[in-house]
Simulated assay, not measured.
Amino acid sequence: MQASPVTDTRAPAAALHPCRLRWNQPWQWLALGVRDVLRAPAIALFYGLCFWAMALMMAWVFRASPEYAMAMASGCLLVGPFMAMGLYEVSRQLELGGAPRFSESLTCWERNLSGMGMLVMVLLVLEMLWARAAMVVFAVFFDTGMPTTATLMQTLLRWENWEFLAVYAAVGGVFAALVFASTVVALPAMLDRGTDALTACITSMRVVCLNLPVMALWGLLIAALVILSMGWGGVFLLIVGPVLGCASWHAYRDSVAGDAAAPAGEEGT
């Protein structure tokens, strides 16, 4: 049976108004993400396998060259949102009452090719800076010899390495926060509304600034779920990855209003 066509409801790029969010909404986004995954399990499984493959690759890098682990993690953090675009499209089609199509989830980025290309270039530059910063931190602050995989935790937890751990975490946290703030609703907005990269990133940062505690909770939930799912060889990413991808679509839908919405400062709580 052929699926019903999905109507394109993308709004003009100028119609982007950040909305105020409530504390309980991140949990609602996760519940909606689970619902969408259950409604499109085959497509979700494909993207779950992709996320799992990323985890396996990162584990291999961690074992082979621990000094490149942060660079690999940053690369996955940048690639992950683009991979999740197919899941945004799944949730978008479900929201419009249509049946998700695997082929459309793979090619949805073509609707805003120029904007996506610009954002990819910006994030690639950011990833290279992040990787270089990680290597500099290792070179400057890690002076007890490069650890092997077997002795990594023992070496890192030695008292003389506290400065390295603090700086390493701080540098990684800054870059992670920057990527999160600039992309948390940017990619869904570009997919849904045809928004250009600059407008989408600025809107994403405005959403985060307006709802800093709630978006910080959302970021911590994402980080916690990803870290917890890395156990058992990252196999839990088969489920967690698609759920977070679909949930991120609903986070965008609650965070950005269209033409009829009031400016951010007038949104209700």
Rank of each mutant, 00 (worst) to 15 (best):
M205A: 08
I227A: 05
W232K: 06
P41D: 01
S105M: 12
L217I: 11
S103V: 15
Q2I: 06
R101S: 07
P188A: 13
M85I: 03
G245C: 02
L94I: 01
P100L: 02
G98D: 00
N211I: 02
C209D: 15
D8K: 14
L178E: 05
A69G: 07
P81D: 00
C76K: 08
L21G: 02
V184D: 01
V171M: 15
Q25N: 05
W29G: 03
R35M: 00
Q25G: 06
T107Y: 10
W249G: 05
G115L: 06
L220N: 08
L228R: 00
L220A: 10
A186Y: 11
S74H: 12
T9W: 11
P5M: 06
L123N: 11
A42K: 15
L56H: 06
V37L: 06
A247S: 08
G268M: 14
G75P: 00
V243I: 07
C246G: 05
D259W: 08
V34N: 01
A262I: 05
H250D: 00
G117H: 03
L244N: 01
T151I: 15
L87E: 02
N211Q: 01
I202N: 13
A133R: 04
P12W: 05
V256G: 02
F175W: 15
A181L: 12
A166I: 08
E67I: 14
M85R: 08
G194L: 05
A59C: 11
I43R: 00
W29D: 04
G234I: 01
A186K: 09
L87W: 10
M153Q: 15
A169I: 14
L56D: 04
I227R: 14
Q93F: 11
A262L: 13
M85A: 05
C19F: 08
L30E: 01
R39E: 01
D143Q: 10
L129R: 09
M70D: 05
T144R: 15
W109Y: 13
S74Y: 09
F164K: 12
M54L: 08
N24V: 13
A14S: 07
G231F: 12
E163Q: 13
S114E: 13
F51Q: 07
G219Q: 06
L244K: 01
I239T: 12
G97W: 04
S91N: 10
P242C: 02
L32I: 02
L124N: 13
L237V: 09
W249I: 05
D8F: 13
W27I: 12
A11T: 14
L16A: 09
L165M: 14
D143P: 05
A150W: 05
S229H: 01
A14R: 08
S204E: 00
L113A: 07
L198P: 03
Y252T: 01
L165K: 15
R10V: 05
P242D: 01
L56G: 11
A176F: 14
G145L: 04
E267R: 11
C19T: 12
L225E: 02
T9K: 13
G231Y: 12
T269Y: 12
E110S: 07
